[in-house]
């Protein structure tokens, strides 16, 4: 749970911290749109390079970002596999016959069982899973004694491979960019920036201030609620709830024993927060003065110009190539 770093501010002094939150949000939007415009593997790799450069200059350790990517690892792997299996265009790079025989079927089951039993002792669980999956595939394609039970072909096409890689890199870029924003911007600044950017929406009677407040409170409460969830888990564990084992029916009950206190506590928290805000005379929609006002510097203009440059080049390469 400590891996989720969305909504966590990390103090620092680099240019990312000196920027105005407005320019940071706008830059993030421009870079994200640019990423979606790109359609080619080489171009997206250049984009990844740009993002890594931002991390380097901004002094954000890549390890930290990588830790934040861990929760979406499964999603990445899933899209990767699907792309490889289902895209059947381009030139064939690799194809092999997967044969399931009377000998390899029990062997496969044995390997999976072995993986299941030993995975808790292995430090790099993810790598271990990959190696096991790869091992099974290799065995199925090369080792074919005995009578054949069923067989299918595994074909990997150029487009499938590049498409899978492309989507993975794109996801990584998007998550990294938004993580940079939340890592380097204090929630209060983020709130103020959003509010200023959404200001024009007041023409169509949308209160930007409220939306900004809702977003920033939601971000602020992610770590707090995770902390609460952890405490509830401990409290229920001391009443014999074992979250790792048990039958399905018990598991449902265990999850309810987590969710109900979670809801009660979040409602209570929001009630307390509302009271605390009201006690300090918060009235939604009223004009407020600020202790800190935002100021736009040359740095912001430079960064925005740089981002627009990337945006234009993205459109150019899309149209030209």
């Amino acid at each position: 749970m400590k891996n989720i770093i969305i909504g966590q501010y990390l103090p620092g002094t680099s240019f990312l911290y000196k920027m105005d939150p407005r320019s940071k949000i706008i830059a993030l939007m421009i870079l994200m749109i640019s990423t979606f415009i790109l359609k080619d593997v080489t171009h997206i790799l250049i984009m990844l390079g740009v993002v890594l450069l931002i991390l380097k200059i901004g002094g954000i350790p890549i390890v930290r970002i990588a830790r934040g990517l861990k929760p979406i690892m499964i999603l990445l792997l899933f899209t990767f596999t699907f792309q490889i299996i289902f895209i059947k265009t381009g030139n064939l790079i690799f194809d092999t016959e997967l044969t399931l025989t009377v000998f390899t079927l029990p062997l496969m089951i044995f390997i999976i069982l072995f993986w299941y039993l030993t995975r808790r002792y292995i430090k790099f669980k993810f790598l271990y899973l990959l190696i096991t999956a790869f091992g099974i595939l290799t065995m199925l394609s090369l080792y074919t004694p005995g009578s054949v039970l069923s067989s299918s072909t595994l074909e990997v096409y150029g487009d499938g491979l590049s498409g899978a890689f492309f989507i993975m890199v794109r996801l990584i870029i998007i998550v990294t960019l938004s993580t940079i924003l939340t890592l380097t911007t204090k929630p209060t600044d983020l709130n103020l920036g959003l509010e200023k950017i959404l200001k024009p929406l007041s023409i169509i009677r949308i209160n930007a201030e409220e939306i900004a407040m809702i977003i920033s409170i939601a971000l602020r409460y992610i770590p707090t609620l995770l902390d609460e969830a952890n405490k509830i888990m401990l409290a229920q564990a001391s009443r014999g709830v074992d979250f790792t084992e048990g039958k399905f029916k018990d598991k449902v009950m265990q999850i309810i024993s987590l969710l109900v206190p979670m809801f009660i506590i979040s409602f209570k928290r929001s009630d307390d927060l509302a009271n605390a805000m009201e006690a300090r005379s918060f009235v939604p929609g009223k004009r407020r003065t600020r202790l800190h006002t935002l100021s736009w510097h040359n740095l912001d203009t430079t960064v925005i110009v740089f981002c627009i440059f990337i945006f234009i080049s993205a459109i150019t390469v899309r149209v030209m190539f």
């Binding site: 405490k231 401990l234 409290a235 001391s238 009443r239 309810i256 024993s257 969710l259 206190p261 506590i265």
Partner: peptide, 14 residues
């Protein structure tokens, strides 16, 4: 070893 937590809100749910 029975442990009672400080805040009952963390465990009441039924």
């Amino acid at each position: 070893v029975g442990l009672v937590f400080q805040f009952p809100e963390y465990q009441l749910f039924e």
